[in-house]
């Protein structure tokens, strides 16, 4: 599928109306406008802070944390999820712990991470990785455990050794759900990077947004928030593009199942 085909053109009128409403409301109600500068001004400001490079340094710091935290979570949670999915006794051992930790809002780990890791990058990467791990872990476990017995019996009747069974059957069969977990975690990673930067940092987009608000640079603050939204959107698009390419077989399969 081409990139152009993925853009939801039909939704553009609503998007345009939203931007128009933003522009008009802030221009016609000065009281609102004080805290809510017009869209056009925000985008001009965005261009200015990009041009001056001010925002780019913060974006680079945030993206680095994002990549480290997300990659760490993906590596650990996929590996752990595969082990827990494959060995039921291991899962039984860890199930209560997982069920207790999982519902806890992840930002609650920030104070603990500060105690142990300080206020630097390690802390931010760690809390991001922690929060991202859950959807990946649970989806991977479920993906492995829900592989159809017929498929595993087929692997058995063809006498695959455990190594081949893992690489050629278990992993590909569980991959659609692993990808689902990775996708959910993408948004979570960005949330945790921003939140941890807002709490304690001297760079990154989270810090930048809060700092701009505190110094009453309202236009810049909105511009930075818009930049965050755009980064989130771009990351998701990138993920979908990779997903469409790597998991083409699964896209085709599910598309076919949708057709009655």
């Amino acid at each position: 599928m081409s990139i152009a085909g993925q853009i939801p053109w039909k939704g553009l009128p609503v998007l345009a109306a939203g931007l128009g409403l933003w522009e008009l409301s802030s221009r016609f109600f000065p009281l609102v406008g004080n805290y809510f500068p017009p869209a056009t001004e925000v985008f001009v400001t965005l261009a200015a802070i990009v041009g001056s490079g001010e925002i780019l340094l913060h974006a680079a710091a945030s993206l680095a944390r994002f990549v480290e935290g997300y990659a760490l979570a993906a590596t650990i949670a996929v590996s752990a999820g595969l082990c827990l999915g494959l060995w039921r006794p291991l899962y039984m051992l860890f199930e209560p712990l997982i069920e207790l930790l999982r519902p806890m809002p992840s930002p609650a780990t920030i104070p603990i991470a500060i105690l142990f890791l300080g206020i630097g990058d390690e802390m931010k990467v760690a809390v991001t990785a922690y929060a991202c791990s859950w959807p990946i872990l649970l989806n991977t476990i479920d993906g492995v455990r829900s592989i159809d017995p017929v498929l595993m019996n087929t692997a058995a009747t063809f006498r695959l050794n455990p190594w081949e069974r893992f690489w050629k059957v278990t992993l590909p069969a569980a991959s659609p759900q692993i990808v689902t977990g990775l996708r959910v975690s993408l948004a979570i990673a960005l949330i945790l990077v921003t939140t941890s930067e807002m709490i304690v940092s001297n760079d990154g987009l989270g810090f930048y947004v809060l700092d701009l608000q505190r110094s009453f640079r309202i236009r810049e603050m909105y511009a930075a928030i818009v930049a965050l939204a755009m980064i989130g959107y771009a990351l998701n698009r990138l993920f979908v593009a990779v997903d469409d390419w790597v998991m083409a077989w699964h896209k085709g399969l599910t598309r076919k199942e949708e057709i009655p």
Binding site: V150, N153, T154, T157, P172, A173, S175, W249
Partner: peptide, 19 residues
């Protein structure tokens, strides 16, 4: 599962590798 013996299932949609 012995060498030289293969079991084929009714559920082709589950026993074939969709990928």
């Amino acid at each position: 599962p012995p060498e030289g013996l293969i079991l084929l299932f009714q559920e082709y949609n589950k026993s074939l590798m969709a990928w």
